[in-house]
Lab assay of single mutants.
Amino acid sequence: MRVFPVYAPKLIVKHARIFLTGVIWVKDLGRLEFEKGRFLLPRKSLPKVKQAILELNELIEAQN
């Protein structure tokens, strides 16, 4: 598990694309899981977490 002390979308996306499957922890967002290079949306999450995951997945799609 990698810990990101700040929310840096480009760096987080780079990590997810390299490792494809895993878990990261982002300060103020908490634990985020990714599989096959995409972030998974938890069943229950705060609106800011949901927005961050959608933003990260959009960045991943834009890079493909």
Rank of each mutant, 00 (worst) to 15 (best):
M1K: 14
M1E: 15
M1I: 15
R2Q: 15
R2I: 15
V3F: 15
V3D: 07
V3M: 03
F4H: 02
P5I: 14
P5N: 14
P5T: 09
P5G: 09
P5K: 14
V6C: 14
V6R: 08
V6K: 07
Y7C: 03
A8C: 14
A8M: 14
A8R: 08
A8K: 07
P9L: 03
P9K: 04
P9R: 04
K10A: 13
K10V: 12
K10P: 11
K10F: 14
L11P: 08
L11F: 05
L11V: 07
L11N: 05
L11K: 07
I12D: 01
I12P: 00
V13S: 09
V13E: 04
V13K: 02
V13L: 05
V13M: 06
V13P: 00
K14L: 10
K14E: 14
K14Y: 11
K14H: 11
K14F: 09
K14W: 10
H15E: 04
A16P: 01
A16V: 15
A16T: 11
A16S: 08
A16I: 11
R17D: 05
R17Q: 10
I18K: 14
I18E: 14
I18H: 14
I18Q: 14
F19E: 15
F19T: 13
F19A: 14
F19G: 04
L20T: 11
L20A: 10
T21G: 07
T21S: 14
T21F: 10
G22E: 01
G22Y: 03
V23S: 07
I24H: 00
I24V: 07
I24G: 00
I24Q: 00
W25V: 05
W25T: 04
W25Q: 06
W25N: 04
W25Y: 14
V26W: 03
V26S: 01
V26D: 00
K27T: 15
D28E: 09
L29V: 12
L29I: 10
L29G: 00
L29C: 04
L29D: 01
L29R: 03
G30Q: 02
G30W: 02
G30I: 01
R31P: 03
R31K: 14
R31A: 03
R31G: 03
L32V: 06
E33C: 14
E33V: 14
E33Q: 15
E33H: 14
F34T: 00
F34K: 00
E35G: 07
E35N: 12
E35H: 13
K36L: 10
K36Y: 09
K36P: 03
K36R: 10
R38M: 11
R38W: 11
R38C: 07
R38Y: 09
R38V: 11
F39Y: 04
F39C: 02
F39I: 03
F39Q: 02
L40C: 07
L40R: 13
L40K: 13
L41Q: 08
L41P: 07
P42R: 13
P42V: 06
P42N: 11
R43G: 06
R43N: 06
K44S: 07
K44T: 08
K44I: 06
S45W: 10
S45D: 05
S45C: 10
L46M: 11
P47G: 10
P47K: 15
K48A: 07
K48R: 12
K48I: 08
V49E: 04
V49N: 03
V49R: 06
K50I: 06
K50G: 05
Q51K: 14
Q51R: 14
Q51A: 13
Q51Y: 10
Q51D: 08
A52N: 03
A52Y: 04
A52G: 03
I53Q: 01
I53S: 03
I53Y: 04
I53D: 00
I53W: 04
L54H: 12
L54W: 11
E55F: 09
E55N: 07
E55V: 07
E55R: 07
E55P: 00
E55D: 08
L56P: 01
L56Q: 00
L56C: 03
L56N: 02
N57D: 02
N57K: 01
N57F: 03
N57Q: 03
N57C: 03
E58A: 11
L59F: 06
L59D: 03
L59S: 04
L59R: 05
I60R: 04
I60Y: 07
I60M: 13
E61I: 12
E61K: 09
A62Y: 11
A62N: 10
A62D: 09
A62K: 09
A62G: 09
Q63T: 12
Q63E: 14
Q63M: 12
Q63P: 09
Q63V: 11
N64V: 12
N64R: 04
N64M: 11
N64Y: 04
